[in-house]
Write a protein that binds this DNA or RNA. Structure first.
Length: 191
DNA sequence: GAAAGGATCCGCT
DNA sequence: GCGGATCCTTTCA
């Protein structure tokens, strides 16, 4: 079986992990695809849940690397993060669907393939992720995370939907992917 | 104890 | 392009 991303991979600076996750494969209970969009958050970042220190909700962000931090947003949607070094995490924002397409379509209700996982809330819905999965380890089932098998053109830009820290270009995308939550604009230098 | 506001999505205009 | 849905965490008095 192919290499799996485990704790040492995530126990690194969050920007390095974010970059290396573009093109990686994520599945939850056999449903998933290629990661094409992520955002980095860390403790010194006013947009991050960890900015004001540990709370009951964000406790997982201060726990061991390589675990899932899941939270509910706007009372409706769930967002999936990968915990890196203490107080930092990567928000998984979009996937290129590859496995378990029928179940994704069931959960997402008749949207086109490009919209199955083109946003953090959509992705969590398509994969069936909810608060029950907060704190689960990423290196064993139902999670499966495999590294990218080749290099990918990566672009960066400002993060989406935040009200603080807007100038920090910590959004990472697979350049030119049609599965992003939004096109990257303006396009920034690749890494 | 109260109030504000959020790392979103969808439908309507 | 704009606003509503919907809830619960965090903050402040």
């Amino acid at each position: 079986m192919a290499a799996m991303l485990d704790r040492p991979f995530f126990d690194r600076p969050v920007l390095d992990v974010s970059r290396d996750l573009i093109g990686a494969f994520l599945a939850f209970d056999g449903v998933g695809g290629r990661i094409v969009e992520v955002e980095a958050y860390d403790e010194g970042d006013p947009a991050s849940h960890s900015f004001r220190g540990p709370t009951p909700r964000n406790a997982v962000m201060f726990g061991p690397p390589g675990h899932a931090y899941v939270y509910k947003i706007y009372g409706i949607h769930f967002c999936l993060n990968f915990v890196c070094q203490p107080g930092s995490a990567v928000l998984i924002r979009a996937l290129e669907p590859q496995e378990g397409l029928p179940r994704m379509h069931e959960r997402r209700g008749g949207v086109g393939e490009k919209q199955l996982c083109s946003g953090p809330g959509k992705l969590a819905q398509a994969l069936g992720i909810n608060l029950d999965h907060n704190g689960l380890a990423l290196d064993r089932p139902p999670f499966l995370v495999r590294p990218a098998d080749d290099s990918h053109p990566i672009a960066t830009g400002p993060r989406i939907g935040i009200t603080k820290g807007m100038e920090t270009p910590w959004r990472f995308v697979l350049a030119g992917s049609p599965f992003l939550s939004k096109p990257l604009s303006p396009e920034r230098k690749a890494l």
